[in-house]
Simulated scan of single mutants.
Amino acid sequence: MELWYTEKQTDHFGITAKIKQTLVEEQTDFQHLAIIDTVEFGRMLVLDGMVMTTIKDEFVYHEMVAHPVLHTHPNPKHVLVVGGGDGGVIREVLKHPEVEKAVLVEIDGKVIEYSKKYLPEIAGELNNPRVEVIVNDGYMHIHENKNTYDVIMVDSTEPVGPAVQLFEKGFYQGIYDALKEDGIFVAQTDNPWFKGDLIQKVNQDVKEIFPIVKVYQANIPTYPSGLWTFTMGSKTVDPLNIDENNIPELPTKYYTPRLHKAVFALPRFVEDLVNPK
């Protein structure tokens, strides 16, 4: 008998993958968690019925959260990752030798525990001495640590369950206050095919707080529609003013110095969302 997992991405559309086995399934204190082994994409982390990451395509998301912002900031020594308990963003952050300390604040300790066990390729740097792992509410951590971080990365699920408050204007104001005077933040902001209204709202909220706001994109096949956006808010530095010739080559699979500016070139229908006429 064949077993298939289907993520219902909208009321009328979904993606499906053939399953080898279910490695873990648990209702945590915050969400339903499963790790399944699929034929096409390998081991897959699923939270509340949504694909968070897979062994095959995880590098795209994790690289694109970390590297554009870290190559924009002039000297990112102290970095915060909100969410991201699978450890993939932390792994990419640590490729930057100038980062002295990376703090991960994940509300659900079970995500960390099971990622270490079943997704070691992704979570392998969570025990690095440059990393501090805190199991707590990222929203509260932001508001309790003012003027602390050079870069803040929000690696959240979609705005459901415990992640709802991570898409609110008050959270972005808290991020602004938690950043130093030249600080930059980035957040994943979903896809323009199904969540255009979300992208538009986040962009408007962030523009009311940060003087420089840019949206960029990447292709992630297991995420809804495959086209994914990220929103960067900066206090002083424009990512488009960075000289790509000064960006060092890192061991990446998606991000390159030549891609740094290119990802900010948006299709017109996405441009219309972030810069409505």
Rank of each mutant, 00 (worst) to 15 (best):
residue 211 P to F: 10
residue 171 F to S: 06
residue 135 V to G: 00
residue 210 F to L: 05
residue 272 D to T: 08
residue 94 L to C: 05
residue 54 T to W: 00
residue 107 I to T: 00
residue 199 I to F: 09
residue 149 Y to H: 03
residue 275 N to D: 13
residue 210 F to C: 07
residue 156 S to G: 02
residue 174 G to H: 01
residue 25 E to C: 09
residue 152 I to G: 02
residue 220 I to D: 01
residue 106 E to A: 09
residue 264 F to P: 05
residue 199 I to M: 10
residue 18 K to P: 05
residue 87 G to K: 00
residue 149 Y to S: 03
residue 191 N to C: 13
residue 62 H to I: 07
residue 172 Y to T: 06
residue 71 H to I: 01
residue 72 T to A: 05
residue 32 H to Q: 12
residue 46 V to M: 04
residue 19 I to Y: 01
residue 202 V to F: 08
residue 129 P to C: 08
residue 217 Q to I: 11
residue 146 K to A: 11
residue 7 E to I: 02
residue 246 N to S: 15
residue 244 E to W: 12
residue 210 F to G: 06
residue 120 P to I: 06
residue 35 I to C: 04
residue 228 W to E: 11
residue 99 V to W: 04
residue 105 V to T: 00
residue 43 R to I: 06
residue 111 V to R: 11
residue 41 F to R: 04
residue 179 L to F: 07
residue 21 Q to N: 14
residue 50 M to F: 12
residue 237 V to Q: 15
residue 268 R to H: 12
residue 193 W to Y: 09
residue 81 V to H: 00
residue 168 E to C: 09
residue 112 I to T: 12
residue 208 E to G: 07
residue 215 V to Q: 03
residue 253 K to S: 14
residue 207 K to G: 08
residue 171 F to R: 04
residue 143 H to Q: 10
residue 200 Q to T: 08
residue 5 Y to W: 11
residue 103 V to Y: 07
residue 9 Q to N: 12
residue 23 L to W: 10
residue 99 V to R: 00
residue 62 H to Q: 15
residue 68 P to W: 01
residue 249 E to Y: 13
residue 266 L to A: 12
residue 175 I to V: 10
residue 74 P to S: 11
residue 193 W to M: 11
residue 14 G to T: 02
residue 240 L to A: 10
residue 173 Q to H: 13
residue 147 N to F: 05
residue 20 K to T: 10
residue 174 G to I: 01
residue 115 S to D: 10
residue 263 V to K: 03
residue 25 E to D: 11
residue 148 T to E: 01
residue 37 D to Q: 07
residue 233 G to Q: 08
residue 255 Y to P: 09
residue 274 V to R: 12
residue 147 N to S: 10
residue 85 G to M: 04
residue 89 V to K: 05
residue 198 L to Y: 04
residue 103 V to I: 12
residue 109 G to F: 09
residue 18 K to E: 15
residue 252 T to F: 05
residue 229 T to K: 09
residue 82 V to W: 02
residue 221 P to E: 04
residue 80 L to K: 02
